[in-house]
Write a protein that binds this DNA or RNA. Sequence first.
DNA 1: AGCAAATGAATATAAAAATATCGATAAAAA
DNA 2: TTTTTATCGATATTTTTATATTCATTTGCT
Lengths: 206, 206
Amino acid sequence: MSCENAVRRLSEYRRILCKLKALGFTKVFSDHLAGAIDVSPALVRKDFADFGLTGNRKSGYSVGELIDKLNRILLKEHTEEVIMVGCGGIGRALMNYNGFAGEGIRITAGFDSNPDLQNCDAAIPVLDISRLEVYINSHRIRTAIMTVPETYAGTMADRLAAAGIRAILNFSPITLKNLPGCFIRNVNFLYELENVIYFSAQDTPE
Amino acid sequence: MSCENAVRRLSEYRRILCKLKALGFTKVFSDHLAGAIDVSPALVRKDFADFGLTGNRKSGYSVGELIDKLNRILLKEHTEEVIMVGCGGIGRALMNYNGFAGEGIRITAGFDSNPDLQNCDAAIPVLDISRLEVYINSHRIRTAIMTVPETYAGTMADRLAAAGIRAILNFSPITLKNLPGCFIRNVNFLYELENVIYFSAQDTPE
DNA sequence: AGCAAATGAATATAAAAATATCGATAAAAA
DNA sequence: TTTTTATCGATATTTTTATATTCATTTGCT
Ligand SMILES: NC(=O)c1ccc[n+]([C@@H]2O[C@H](COP(=O)([O-])OP(=O)(O)OC[C@H]3O[C@@H](n4cnc5c(N)ncnc54)[C@H](O)[C@@H]3O)[C@@H](O)[C@H]2O)c1
Ligand SMILES: NC(=O)c1ccc[n+]([C@@H]2O[C@H](COP(=O)([O-])OP(=O)(O)OC[C@H]3O[C@@H](n4cnc5c(N)ncnc54)[C@H](O)[C@@H]3O)[C@@H](O)[C@H]2O)c1
């Protein structure tokens, strides 16, 4: 999948734009956005062109219009329902985080094999993993966050894909490849840390 | 900083190599490593060449030697001491994680402004934020993980850099730019989720 | 209305990243 | 020893990504 970086920039643009809107701005120029996320104005325009976001010569882009269109592209017109698979340390931190709600993302349920963690009455219910497929199907869930131990990550991804999940955000330290019909993005804290530690020893990280 | 991706791949190579070593392998070929992390053999060889890792024509690379050299490059010859700034939901999940110890990374202390979270006697002591500078200095800490609220992220990064921190892994949702002498890597869960959600709606994510 | 200034849109260029090619060479086989 | 074969190492090519440039249009001013 090639345009991951471009989509990431869309998220960044959107974030800046929302702040501008809150400040009362109605127009914005490629130049300004470029400065805010540290790329060239040309890239901003190209990103926008690639995703069908248009502006007006001389008067720039409309903040409100951009946000609306970005919301459509990033599936933010309706709340996106996501499930959490594995409700240990990281899983719970994410479930307790209240920053997603305002961004049109809701974690609607968690799943875990450990009965001690299961709780149907919690704000976000944690269900037994055996109920995974039925839940995905009945709630038409397309996206999952996966925070199970490494050992189970591979088979769990297969299981999620088979159950109809179309995309997985994987936090386990094994790098999973996309499955047919299911996009997988891996987040590996160890690699992030190693990266940061590497650069801590480089000259003039600038 | 351009070679972030290459350094990330070094982490990935290292991970695979350690597994191979555990299985008893002593030799490995660019072809095999390439398949494992889904790149071309040519890239593996180029990465290795760029970082001074050499092999032998016909007989490939020595697993043990590669690991040793990667350990040197990734600063894994001695345990790297890291601090956690902000010990809320995410901070504690990371502090409780036991997967870093085996990888030569140790979170030696946490810092928080909330007295309720402070605890000098915990396995990883959580100290008042006012003790940050002295600690960094006396323990010669170079790397910090930052999990404070967005509002404080910018000034805290400045403060860390001023205190001598050379690299920061920032989890707050504001994208920080590198400071003079201090590399910053941003991890933004919201962007990751938005990315994954975007691709969940694309055709044949493959 | 006419003109100048500014900016998006389209295109061209450059830079970076990844891949392919191919000769050299070490190891194994004949 | 000679031949064969497999793989690295270096270089060239391709592909992708980002930046510059050019052009046309809109806006606001006189
Ligand atoms: N916590 C961190 O800071 C951190 C850092 C780096 C990587 N990780 C990775 O993230 C993942 C989760 O980490 P964690 O600290 O939350 O671990 P954890 O052990 O606290 O949580 C894992 C959870 O998955 C559940 N689980 C196990 N098998 C399951 C299955 N088959 N079906 C459903 N649930 C199952 C467990 O019951 C547990 O609650 C791990 O792969 C870990 O390596 C975590
Ligand atoms: N938890 C998540 O899943 C998640 C997801 C996305 C982004 N984030 C971001 O990560 C950061 C941390 O998230 P969290 O859920 O752990 O939040 P949190 O509120 O639980 O933790 C933040 C901690 O920082 C401490 N703090 C505040 N100001 C401080 C200061 N000046 N000095 C030292 N400590 C200070 C607070 O006392 C608190 O303990 C936030 O920026 C959040 O937006 C978290």
